[in-house]
Design a protein around this nucleic acid. Sequence first.
RNA 1: GCCGGCAUAGCUCAAAGGUAGAGCAACGGUUUUGUAAACCGUAGGUUGUAAGUUCGAUUCUUAUUGCCGGCUCCA
Length: 598
Amino acid sequence: MEKNQETLRTLRHSTSHIMAQAVQKLFPSAKLAIGPATDDGFYYDFDLTDGHAFTNDDLEKIEAEMKAIVKQNLTFEKIYLDDVDAKIKEFKDEGEIYKAELLEEHKNDKPTLYLTKDKDGNILFNDLCAGPHVPNTSYIKANAFKLLKVAGAYWRGNEKNKMLQRIYATAYWSKEDLADYLHMMEEAEKRDHRKLGAKLDLFSVREEVGAGFVLWHPNLAVVREEIENYWRTEHRKRGYVIVNTPQIAKSKLWEISGHMDHYKENMFFIQKDDEKDDQYVVKPMNCPFHILIYQANRHSYRSLPLRMAELGTVYRKEKSGALGGLTRVQGFTQDDAHIFCTPEQLVDEINLIIDFVSDTMKIFEMSFEVELSTRPESYVGTIENWDLAEKGLKEAMDKRGMKYDINEGDGAFYGPKIDFKVKDAIGRTWQCATIQLDFNLPERFDIKYQDKDGQLKTPVMLHRVIFGSMERFHGILIEHYAGAFPTWLAPTQVAIVPISNDKHTDYAEKIYKKMRDAGIRASLDDRSESMNYKIRESLQDKKIPYVCVVGDKEIETNTVAVRARGIGQVGTFSVDEFISTIENEIKTRANKSFAKKD
RNA sequence: GCCGGCAUAGCUCAAAGGUAGAGCAACGGUUUUGUAAACCGUAGGUUGUAAGUUCGAUUCUUAUUGCCGGCUCCA
């Protein structure tokens, strides 16, 4: 068997069998659920029927036991089950109810068992498993796997089922590969936006305010301002109108929209003083308001598509355990838009949005994966409409040769959708942009347009976001740049450091003002610290893109000595030359410093 | 919501059934520096919150809030 990337999953799957064997030896009450390989490792789910919970010490013991097992040079052997019912009974007798359930389901699929045998042919472990596996344990290097963490996981991922204990682990062909992986994870943790958020004074979340409600500090507010400026200009260019709508509305609105029926558990309600008062609801979505704005006028096919956008702040009550950082919060601002169009315009409109998303991601040099989610079991509208819509979405993507996965049955109840997913620093994927078709709301609100033939028809409605939410996007942005924002986004773009406060502050202040006047976010560092300290703090700790050092030489020639973040000294420039270079870098939203040559 | 872990100074962490200590940051002073951490000093804490056990709790117990790793759900 060849040791390569493709067979790595096989190695990991085999290692998961070894882990299960070790666990059952050390914890006889452990019943087995499933233990597959994942993209960067594997896990196994156990039910510890004696109620014990795995600790970190347990993980070490299990790992030691696994090392002992692989050294015994055991073989993996595949056998077909002749008498499936007998095996089901055997599983049940052993208390292996999960394996029994799985086998019951696969009884007609020629189920196989994998045996782990020693030299003398004794069976030390067996597991219901389709395979494949490595031939023997010599492939599993004792120093190339590691148990990582314990986590809870529902049997079959269903929250109505019992919570099992999952052990996450990883395995590689060699010790070096494992070390590389662990090093990479360490590096990734350093770019975690929650850590950088505190270090760079970007945002905070306070217990007194509540979980999942973000306080944007001045530094991140600057980034957001730039992002919003981009967003607004770009929307104007692409033919959108921009609106504003209230934060709360009477429950009547949410009854019409269907949110009271389908979304109630995610909504925040405002306490009524009196029974006869109206119930008010904090908005979880912007769409009903946009529809009301649509309704304020009569529309004809000539005035469509109507593209209505809003940076709309919404509040959604989430299950407590789901929250974290900026990527999962309860109050967030969507860069929302709703497009009302005729069925004929649909594919073109979808294409325009995909253009918008990919143009935007290009600016940040972010890569993304695309998923198409189709009709779920419970849905509104007609099958014909759904088929048409799914076809439209596919057509739009195929036409441009876009790669995408299909998520059968994962669409919203009101329509199919295209999701764009971006990876964070530790490899978790987050949905940012999404395009959703909606058959529900136009009918519920009974909105119309007048077609060529004079008939009143129901328009098609698209929901879409480009960034998703400002909170989540900024979380990803922080990790993407590891806190070192490109100049156009950097909270402070230039730090000016006089060599001697006594002699050089006047000049420093002069060029500081000049940069401020030019719209550059400069800061003047005239604290009583050493020049070296200021340079280090600015470039390394605060991650400011440029430091301008000024002393006697610079005053004499009206110049600045420039040092760039991550690069070092880049030379002396006249003040005007430096300002216009920076201005250009900001204007073009360059990802790289002008000082970087490649 | 569920399983598990955590909560000590602004940050990173230490100690302990007899009311806590370091580094960095802050503040004060000295220094005025030629390219990625100058020196000296000062202050800083009801140990997340509430209750219980105890002569005494920050440490033990319970509840609660928040955070972290997952599951479920999701922008």
